[in-house]
Design a protein around this nucleic acid. Sequence first.
DNA 1: AAGCGTATCCCTGAAAAACAGGATATTTTC
DNA 2: GAAAATATCCTGTTTTTCAGGGATACGCTT
Lengths: 204, 204
Amino acid sequence: MITKVFIVDDHYMVIEGIRSLLQNEKSVEWAGHATNAASCLAFLQQHQPDVILMDINLPDKSGIDLCKEVKEKYPSVFVVGLSTFNQQSFIQKMMDSGASGYVLKNASQDELMEAIEAVAKGKTYLSDEASQTLRRNESTNILLTRREKEVLELIAEGMTNNVIAQKLFISPATVDTHRKNLLAKLDAKNTASLIRMASQLQLI
Amino acid sequence: MITKVFIVDDHYMVIEGIRSLLQNEKSVEWAGHATNAASCLAFLQQHQPDVILMDINLPDKSGIDLCKEVKEKYPSVFVVGLSTFNQQSFIQKMMDSGASGYVLKNASQDELMEAIEAVAKGKTYLSDEASQTLRRNESTNILLTRREKEVLELIAEGMTNNVIAQKLFISPATVDTHRKNLLAKLDAKNTASLIRMASQLQLI
DNA sequence: AAGCGTATCCCTGAAAAACAGGATATTTTC
DNA sequence: GAAAATATCCTGTTTTTCAGGGATACGCTT
């Protein structure tokens, strides 16, 4: 069985790289490529590949949104997320949007083929790094409660406890407690280091 | 004249892509590739290419540091920065570290060749996007003075004005003034939004 | 249903930072 | 050498943060 593979990525070098990696594979047929979401959707109206390798960052639309749209319109097409970053939030969102797999751009030929073959059969495939980050974040993500996240966002936007309190219909003292807990959970000494940590952990 | 090109990038797909883009070019010879800074330096001890295409993000060392080191030891080797991001601070730092050019990974074959040919002759080459960002940031980069950046860093690390004052051997009042100016320059209301803005602007 | 843990809520008082509104050296830049 | 930018230092008032308490509500397990 030959798997038709289509690729969406705004980097020519990556498209060329993947084409070159796949050209010797007999089980794979190169269906084409697109450098943005619009031309990907246009292509899909005419042809339907088996697997789409999809970058997270596209010029006109995020890969996450594109993935959702593709899976809605063409549920039989399997999507593999593709990105440079090993960032949990992206991986999570991509999988939530219906992707069947996720590989990083430093993947080897073998890994790429493994991913394509797996998802073509309807399985899911996560690269080792990706599944690690996903697991790592399952544990670190329990960190903040819903309320704490809300408060954190508003603090980051420069609001004072009083303003936040008004916004959330709670007492300023309560906001302060959440703040205190945030400081403890993120191991921060004060607001400055709190926001910095939150920023580094991609919480805001 | 044939230009020997070496590439350092931790993404196989990109290496393959560039190899594929360059393989038909008669004026270019493929000198080899490395996926990290260490093996790049090891290679340079044996052979010296004319041009190195260098990713900004490497696993063991930043491309910026590697670029500095390469230019110190082998001043005749020209470096072209390579990255996905169109981010001013990186471009700026790369050029400051002795790079002769900068192209984005969505560059076309023509653009890549143009860059290689230009830097091989000792000229500098910046992709349109890169030079735009550089110009854009020349205006926004005047923002912070050296001292202000120092103070900003220390604030982000969670230090209080008094501690910062001790560290920099200045009065707490002076730290406060810098802080005030930072708030004004970054258009922030308070410490929280200051750190968040700084984080978004990649200043910390 | 009782018990446990966690989330959410509230208070007070001391410490720290923000803010307003100054002034004076010391570099850069033209 | 003059102007502009940078870095330095005050004072005092207002606002926010932070440490150390405690209380209720909710969900989950036994």
